Simulated assay, not measured.
Amino acid sequence: MHVTLRQLQVFRSIATLGQVQLAAKQLHLSQPATSMALSELEKHLNCLLFDRSGNRLLINVQGKKLLPLACELLDRTNEITHLFSAKNSLSGKLTIGASTTIGNYLLPQQLIRFKTNHPEVDVELDIHNTTTIIERIASMELDIGYVEGPCQHPGIEAIPWREDQLTLFCSSEHPLANKPTVTLKDLEQAHWILREQGSGTRFIFDKHIGQHLRQPHIKMELNQTEAIKHMVSAGAGISCLSELSIAKELDQGEFVPLSFQSKTIKRQFWLLLNRKKYRGDLVNALLNATQVKSLPLRSKLDKSSK
Rank of each mutant, 00 (worst) to 15 (best):
R56N: 14
G145R: 14
N178Q: 06
L187Y: 02
S91R: 09
S199N: 07
M140P: 00
L94I: 10
L107A: 13
E141K: 15
Q110Y: 14
L66H: 12
L57S: 00
P154Y: 02
L187P: 07
D126Y: 11
K115N: 11
E196Y: 09
S99M: 05
N178C: 06
R162I: 03
E188I: 01
V182T: 09
E124Q: 14
G97V: 08
I159M: 01
P154E: 03
V147S: 04
I59G: 07
A98S: 08
M140Y: 09
R162P: 01
N60S: 10
T101A: 12
M140F: 08
E79A: 13
A138H: 02
H82V: 11
I127H: 11
H153K: 00
L66Q: 03
G200Q: 00
Q189V: 00
T77G: 02
E163R: 07
K179R: 09
G97A: 06
L67A: 11
N117R: 12
D75N: 15
D126W: 07
E120I: 05
V182W: 09
Y146P: 00
S91T: 05
Y105S: 11
F84V: 09
Q189L: 01
P119C: 14
E120L: 04
G97I: 09
V121E: 15
P160T: 01
I80G: 03
I59L: 11
E141F: 10
A158W: 06
Y146N: 00
I137M: 04
E188P: 00
E148V: 02
L106I: 12
P175K: 05
S172C: 00
R113D: 15
N178S: 02
Q109N: 13
H118R: 12
E135N: 12
L74A: 04
E188Q: 10
T201I: 09
T100W: 06
D143H: 13
